[in-house]
Protein backbone atom coordinates (compact mmCIF):
# COMPACT_ATOMS: atom_id res chain seq x y z
CA UNK A 1 0.00 0.00 0.00
CA UNK A 2 2.58 2.52 1.10
CA UNK A 3 5.05 1.32 -1.56
CA UNK A 4 2.44 1.79 -4.28
CA UNK A 5 1.65 5.21 -2.92
CA UNK A 6 5.30 6.16 -2.92
CA UNK A 7 5.71 5.01 -6.50
CA UNK A 8 2.77 7.19 -7.48
CA UNK A 9 4.18 10.19 -5.69
CA UNK A 10 7.52 9.65 -7.42
CA UNK A 11 5.81 9.38 -10.78
CA UNK A 12 3.87 12.58 -10.16
CA UNK A 13 7.03 14.39 -9.07
CA UNK A 14 8.82 13.35 -12.25
CA UNK A 15 5.86 14.06 -14.51
CA UNK A 16 5.44 17.60 -13.22
CA UNK A 17 8.58 19.14 -14.77
CA UNK A 18 8.02 17.34 -18.07
CA UNK A 19 4.42 18.46 -18.37
CA UNK A 20 5.21 21.98 -17.22
CA UNK A 21 7.98 22.25 -19.83
CA UNK A 22 6.00 20.80 -22.72
CA UNK A 23 2.76 22.51 -21.75
CA UNK A 24 3.97 26.00 -20.94
CA UNK A 25 6.77 26.30 -23.47
CA UNK A 26 5.64 24.19 -26.43
CA UNK A 27 1.95 23.31 -26.43
CA UNK A 28 0.24 26.44 -25.11
CA UNK A 29 2.51 28.85 -27.05
CA UNK A 30 1.58 27.06 -30.25
CA UNK A 31 -2.11 27.21 -29.38
CA UNK A 32 -1.64 30.94 -28.83
CA UNK A 33 0.12 31.21 -32.17
CA UNK A 34 -2.72 29.36 -33.90
CA UNK A 35 -5.30 31.66 -32.31
CA UNK A 36 -3.31 34.71 -33.39
CA UNK A 37 -3.03 33.47 -36.95
CA UNK A 38 -6.77 32.90 -37.20
CA UNK A 39 -7.93 36.35 -36.26
CA UNK A 40 -8.04 39.78 -37.79
CA UNK A 41 -7.82 43.22 -36.26
CA UNK A 42 -11.02 45.14 -36.94
CA UNK A 43 -10.46 48.06 -34.60
CA UNK A 44 -8.35 49.13 -31.63
CA UNK A 45 -8.22 46.12 -29.28
CA UNK A 46 -10.93 44.44 -31.34
CA UNK A 47 -10.44 41.22 -33.20
CA UNK A 48 -12.60 38.85 -35.19
CA UNK A 49 -11.98 35.29 -36.29
CA UNK A 50 -10.89 35.18 -39.89
CA UNK A 51 -8.73 33.44 -42.42
CA UNK A 52 -7.51 36.69 -43.90
CA UNK A 53 -3.89 36.20 -42.75
CA UNK A 54 -3.66 33.02 -44.77
CA UNK A 55 -5.52 34.64 -47.66
CA UNK A 56 -2.93 37.41 -47.76
CA UNK A 57 -0.24 34.80 -48.09
CA UNK A 58 -1.87 33.09 -51.03
CA UNK A 59 -2.92 36.23 -52.86
CA UNK A 60 0.25 38.24 -52.37
CA UNK A 61 2.75 36.88 -54.92
CA UNK A 62 5.75 38.21 -52.99
CA UNK A 63 5.15 36.04 -49.91
CA UNK A 64 4.25 33.04 -51.98
CA UNK A 65 7.35 33.47 -54.10
CA UNK A 66 9.65 33.73 -51.08
CA UNK A 67 8.04 30.70 -49.48
CA UNK A 68 8.56 28.48 -52.54
CA UNK A 69 12.04 29.82 -53.03
CA UNK A 70 13.00 29.05 -49.43
CA UNK A 71 11.67 25.51 -49.80
CA UNK A 72 13.50 24.89 -53.08
CA UNK A 73 16.81 26.33 -51.94
CA UNK A 74 16.55 24.22 -48.78
CA UNK A 75 16.06 21.09 -50.89
CA UNK A 76 19.07 21.93 -53.06
CA UNK A 77 21.15 22.76 -49.98
CA UNK A 78 20.22 19.41 -48.42
CA UNK A 79 21.24 17.56 -51.59
CA UNK A 80 24.57 19.40 -51.80
CA UNK A 81 25.22 18.78 -48.11
CA UNK A 82 24.77 15.07 -48.73
CA UNK A 83 27.02 15.08 -51.80
CA UNK A 84 29.73 17.03 -50.01
CA UNK A 85 29.78 14.93 -46.83
CA UNK A 86 29.22 11.43 -48.19
CA UNK A 87 32.80 10.94 -49.46
CA UNK A 88 34.14 12.21 -46.15
CA UNK A 89 31.85 9.90 -44.18
CA UNK A 90 33.10 7.04 -46.37
CA UNK A 91 36.73 7.95 -45.73
CA UNK A 92 36.11 8.16 -41.98
CA UNK A 93 34.10 4.95 -41.69
CA UNK A 94 35.60 2.73 -44.38
CA UNK A 95 38.77 3.98 -46.06
CA UNK A 96 40.69 5.04 -42.95
CA UNK A 97 38.73 3.51 -40.05
CA UNK A 98 40.27 2.74 -36.65
CA UNK A 99 42.28 5.44 -34.92
CA UNK A 100 42.95 7.49 -38.06
CA UNK A 101 39.26 7.49 -38.93
CA UNK A 102 38.26 8.50 -35.41
CA UNK A 103 40.84 11.30 -35.45
CA UNK A 104 39.59 12.64 -38.79
CA UNK A 105 36.04 12.48 -37.45
CA UNK A 106 36.97 14.60 -34.44
CA UNK A 107 38.84 17.05 -36.68
CA UNK A 108 35.75 17.40 -38.88
CA UNK A 109 33.56 18.13 -35.85
CA UNK A 110 35.83 20.84 -34.44
CA UNK A 111 34.51 23.81 -36.47
CA UNK A 112 30.99 23.14 -35.25
CA UNK A 113 31.95 23.91 -31.68
CA UNK A 114 32.17 27.52 -32.81
CA UNK A 115 28.97 29.48 -33.28
CA UNK A 116 27.39 30.03 -36.67
CA UNK A 117 27.95 33.77 -36.25
CA UNK A 118 31.71 33.31 -36.16
CA UNK A 119 31.73 30.92 -39.11
CA UNK A 120 29.60 33.32 -41.14
CA UNK A 121 31.94 36.16 -40.24
CA UNK A 122 34.74 34.07 -41.75
CA UNK A 123 32.86 33.64 -45.02
CA UNK A 124 32.10 37.36 -45.16
CA UNK A 125 35.78 38.21 -44.80
CA UNK A 126 36.63 35.65 -47.48
CA UNK A 127 34.00 36.59 -50.03
CA UNK A 128 33.21 40.30 -49.84
CA UNK A 129 34.46 42.52 -52.61
CA UNK A 130 37.46 43.71 -50.62
CA UNK A 131 37.86 40.25 -49.15
CA UNK A 132 40.45 37.50 -49.38
CA UNK A 133 39.23 35.46 -52.34
CA UNK A 134 38.40 38.32 -54.72
CA UNK A 135 41.82 39.88 -54.15
CA UNK A 136 43.43 36.48 -54.63
CA UNK A 137 41.63 36.11 -57.97
CA UNK A 138 42.98 39.48 -59.06
CA UNK A 139 46.49 38.54 -58.00
CA UNK A 140 46.30 35.31 -59.97
CA UNK A 141 45.13 37.27 -62.99
CA UNK A 142 41.81 35.46 -63.23
CA UNK A 143 39.74 38.63 -62.88
CA UNK A 144 40.74 42.21 -63.68
CA UNK A 145 38.99 43.83 -60.73
CA UNK A 146 37.76 42.31 -57.45
CA UNK A 147 34.31 40.77 -57.86
CA UNK A 148 31.64 40.86 -55.19
CA UNK A 149 31.16 37.25 -54.14
CA UNK A 150 28.66 37.97 -51.37
CA UNK A 151 24.93 38.52 -51.91
CA UNK A 152 24.42 35.82 -54.56
CA UNK A 153 22.19 32.78 -54.32
CA UNK A 154 25.27 30.59 -54.65
CA UNK A 155 26.76 32.31 -51.60
CA UNK A 156 23.65 31.58 -49.54
CA UNK A 157 23.78 27.97 -50.70
CA UNK A 158 27.45 27.68 -49.79
CA UNK A 159 26.82 29.12 -46.35
CA UNK A 160 23.85 26.84 -45.71
CA UNK A 161 25.76 23.73 -46.77
CA UNK A 162 28.73 24.72 -44.65
CA UNK A 163 26.77 25.50 -41.55
CA UNK A 164 24.75 22.26 -41.41
CA UNK A 165 27.27 19.69 -42.65
CA UNK A 166 27.81 18.28 -39.19
CA UNK A 167 24.22 17.11 -38.95
CA UNK A 168 24.65 15.07 -42.12
CA UNK A 169 28.12 13.77 -41.32
CA UNK A 170 27.30 12.22 -37.94
CA UNK A 171 24.39 9.97 -39.04
CA UNK A 172 26.21 9.06 -42.27
CA UNK A 173 29.33 7.93 -40.46
CA UNK A 174 27.39 5.86 -37.94
CA UNK A 175 25.32 4.15 -40.64
CA UNK A 176 28.37 3.40 -42.81
CA UNK A 177 30.31 2.04 -39.85
CA UNK A 178 27.68 -0.64 -39.36
CA UNK A 179 28.08 -1.90 -42.94
CA UNK A 180 29.90 -5.24 -42.99
CA UNK A 181 32.98 -5.14 -45.24
CA UNK A 182 32.38 -8.77 -46.18
CA UNK A 183 29.36 -7.71 -48.23
CA UNK A 184 31.47 -5.32 -50.28
CA UNK A 185 34.23 -7.89 -50.71
CA UNK A 186 31.73 -10.54 -51.80
CA UNK A 187 30.19 -8.20 -54.36
CA UNK A 188 33.63 -7.33 -55.64
CA UNK A 189 34.65 -10.99 -55.93
CA UNK A 190 31.49 -11.66 -57.88
CA UNK A 191 32.54 -9.02 -60.37
CA UNK A 192 30.45 -6.01 -59.34
CA UNK A 193 31.82 -2.62 -60.36
CA UNK A 194 32.45 0.10 -57.80
CA UNK A 195 29.40 1.98 -59.00
CA UNK A 196 27.03 -0.95 -58.69
CA UNK A 197 28.39 -1.78 -55.23
CA UNK A 198 27.65 1.79 -54.22
CA UNK A 199 24.18 1.72 -55.72
CA UNK A 200 22.98 -1.72 -54.62
CA UNK A 201 24.79 -2.26 -51.31
CA UNK A 202 26.17 0.91 -49.75
CA UNK A 203 23.33 3.35 -50.42
CA UNK A 204 20.52 0.96 -49.36
CA UNK A 205 22.41 0.11 -46.18
CA UNK A 206 23.06 3.77 -45.38
CA UNK A 207 19.50 4.84 -46.24
CA UNK A 208 18.35 5.31 -42.62
CA UNK A 209 21.37 7.49 -41.91
CA UNK A 210 20.84 9.46 -45.10
CA UNK A 211 17.20 10.09 -44.26
CA UNK A 212 17.99 11.11 -40.72
CA UNK A 213 20.65 13.52 -41.91
CA UNK A 214 18.49 14.90 -44.71
CA UNK A 215 15.54 15.54 -42.40
CA UNK A 216 17.61 17.41 -39.84
CA UNK A 217 19.57 19.38 -42.43
CA UNK A 218 16.44 20.35 -44.36
CA UNK A 219 14.68 21.49 -41.22
CA UNK A 220 17.62 23.52 -39.97
CA UNK A 221 18.12 25.09 -43.38
CA UNK A 222 14.48 26.05 -43.70
CA UNK A 223 14.53 27.64 -40.26
CA UNK A 224 17.88 29.35 -40.68
CA UNK A 225 17.94 33.10 -40.33
CA UNK A 226 21.51 34.19 -39.82
CA UNK A 227 23.20 32.74 -42.91
CA UNK A 228 20.75 34.01 -45.56
CA UNK A 229 20.53 37.39 -43.86
CA UNK A 230 24.28 37.95 -43.70
CA UNK A 231 25.51 36.18 -46.82
CA UNK A 232 22.51 37.08 -48.98
CA UNK A 233 21.98 40.62 -47.76
CA UNK A 234 18.96 42.27 -49.28
CA UNK A 235 18.69 39.57 -51.95
CA UNK A 236 18.27 36.72 -49.53
CA UNK A 237 14.46 36.57 -49.66
CA UNK A 238 14.29 33.98 -46.94
CA UNK A 239 10.98 33.12 -45.30
CA UNK A 240 12.17 33.37 -41.71
CA UNK A 241 13.03 36.99 -42.43
CA UNK A 242 9.42 37.59 -43.41
CA UNK A 243 8.32 36.17 -40.08
CA UNK A 244 10.78 38.41 -38.27
CA UNK A 245 9.65 41.46 -40.22
CA UNK A 246 6.00 40.87 -39.48
CA UNK A 247 6.51 40.00 -35.84
CA UNK A 248 9.24 42.34 -34.68
CA UNK A 249 9.51 45.17 -37.19
CA UNK A 250 5.88 45.73 -38.18
CA UNK A 251 4.37 44.33 -35.01
CA UNK A 252 1.77 42.55 -37.14
CA UNK A 253 1.62 39.46 -34.95
CA UNK A 254 -1.42 37.99 -36.68
CA UNK A 255 0.34 37.89 -40.04
CA UNK A 256 3.61 36.72 -38.50
CA UNK A 257 1.83 33.88 -36.69
CA UNK A 258 0.22 32.72 -39.94
CA UNK A 259 3.62 32.75 -41.65
CA UNK A 260 5.06 30.81 -38.73
CA UNK A 261 2.42 28.14 -39.10
CA UNK A 262 2.98 27.88 -42.83
CA UNK A 263 6.69 27.33 -42.26
CA UNK A 264 5.99 24.81 -39.51
CA UNK A 265 3.55 23.02 -41.83
CA UNK A 266 6.09 22.82 -44.64
CA UNK A 267 8.78 21.54 -42.31
CA UNK A 268 6.42 18.92 -40.82
CA UNK A 269 5.26 17.71 -44.23
CA UNK A 270 8.81 17.32 -45.49
CA UNK A 271 9.83 15.43 -42.35
CA UNK A 272 6.87 13.09 -42.79
CA UNK A 273 7.64 12.50 -46.47
CA UNK A 274 11.21 11.67 -45.51
CA UNK A 275 10.05 9.22 -42.87
CA UNK A 276 7.51 7.64 -45.20
CA UNK A 277 10.03 7.24 -48.02
CA UNK A 278 12.45 5.42 -45.79
CA UNK A 279 9.82 3.65 -43.70
CA UNK A 280 11.26 4.85 -40.41
CA UNK A 281 9.77 5.97 -37.16
CA UNK A 282 10.20 9.49 -35.86
CA UNK A 283 11.76 8.47 -32.56
CA UNK A 284 14.38 6.25 -34.21
CA UNK A 285 15.47 9.03 -36.53
CA UNK A 286 15.85 11.53 -33.71
CA UNK A 287 17.90 9.12 -31.62
CA UNK A 288 20.21 8.53 -34.55
CA UNK A 289 21.38 12.13 -34.59
Amino acid sequence: MSAAWRARAALAALLAPALLWLGALILLPHVELAVLSLRERIGPQQYAASLSQYKTFFTEPLYWHIFVRTALVSCVATLFTFLATFPIAWIIAKALRGRAGALLFIVCLVPFWVSETVRTLGWMILLRESGVLPSLLVKLGITQVPVEMLYHDATILLGLVYTNMLFMLVPLVSSLESLDDALIEAAYDLGASGWSILRTIVIPHAAPGITAGAIIVFMLTLGNYLTPALLGGKNSEWFTEQIYTQFITRFNWEQGAAFGFLLLGLSTIMVMIGLRLSGQRFGDVMRRT
Binding site: P29, L33, M219, T240, G260
Partner: peptide, 14 residues
Protein backbone atom coordinates in the same frame (compact mmCIF):
# COMPACT_ATOMS: atom_id res chain seq x y z
CA UNK B 1 11.82 19.61 -35.18
CA UNK B 2 10.21 23.00 -34.64
CA UNK B 3 12.29 25.73 -36.31
CA UNK B 4 13.91 27.95 -33.68
CA UNK B 5 12.33 31.10 -35.05
CA UNK B 6 8.87 29.63 -34.48
CA UNK B 7 9.71 28.48 -30.95
CA UNK B 8 10.77 32.07 -30.35
CA UNK B 9 7.67 33.80 -31.69
CA UNK B 10 5.26 31.35 -30.08
CA UNK B 11 6.82 31.81 -26.64
CA UNK B 12 6.89 35.56 -27.21
CA UNK B 13 3.18 35.59 -28.09
CA UNK B 14 2.17 33.33 -25.20
Amino acid sequence: VIPGVILGISILAF
